[in-house]
Computed example of a mutant assay.
Amino acid sequence: MKMEDSIWSLLEEVIDPELGVNIVDLGLVYDVLVDANRQVRITMTLTIPECPLADEIVDQVKNAASQVPGVEGVDVNLVWEPKWTPAKMNDAAREEFRARQTMTP
């Protein structure tokens, strides 16, 4: 398995604490690049720029990517363009989000 694929897989374990859905299915991760020195650059966004849990999410992303054998360093590039919208969620995220909404009293 390619290093990028392993990183994407581990990023699926990072859950947005407010929505309860992983950041990959939400469409928050735009790109994962690994250079020749095994430095990882993850370009991503958050659901809102003023997210109070931004530091926590970024730390979880760095920790997840660092678990892949051979990774020498991880840089998370938070971007605000293109802006995140619910349209970026995949079908799995939509189903999970809907299920959570129906459970809420």
Rank of each mutant, 00 (worst) to 15 (best):
G27T: 05
L28D: 00
L28T: 00
V29N: 02
Y30I: 05
Y30D: 06
D31I: 01
L33Y: 11
L33N: 13
L33W: 09
L33G: 01
V34G: 02
D35P: 07
N37W: 02
R38C: 09
R38I: 05
Q39T: 08
M44Y: 01
M44R: 00
T45F: 01
L46Y: 07
T47G: 07
T47S: 07
I48Y: 13
I48A: 15
I48H: 08
E50V: 12
E50A: 14
E50G: 12
E50L: 09
C51M: 08
C51F: 07
C51K: 03
P52F: 06
A54L: 07
A54D: 08
D55N: 13
D55H: 10
D55C: 04
D55K: 15
E56S: 13
I57C: 07
I57Y: 05
V58I: 15
V58P: 02
D59H: 11
D59A: 15
D59L: 13
D59W: 09
Q60R: 14
Q60K: 14
V61R: 04
K62N: 03
A64W: 04
A64Y: 03
A65H: 03
A65D: 04
S66G: 12
Q67T: 10
Q67W: 04
Q67M: 15
V68N: 06
V68M: 03
P69T: 11
G70Q: 08
G70E: 11
G70L: 12
V71F: 01
E72P: 00
E72T: 13
V74E: 05
N77K: 13
N77V: 11
N77D: 15
L78E: 05
L78N: 00
V79M: 02
V79H: 05
W80A: 07
E81L: 09
E81K: 03
P82K: 09
K83H: 13
K83A: 14
K83V: 13
T85K: 10
T85Y: 08
P86W: 09
P86C: 11
A87K: 14
A87V: 09
A87N: 11
A87G: 11
A87D: 15
K88W: 12
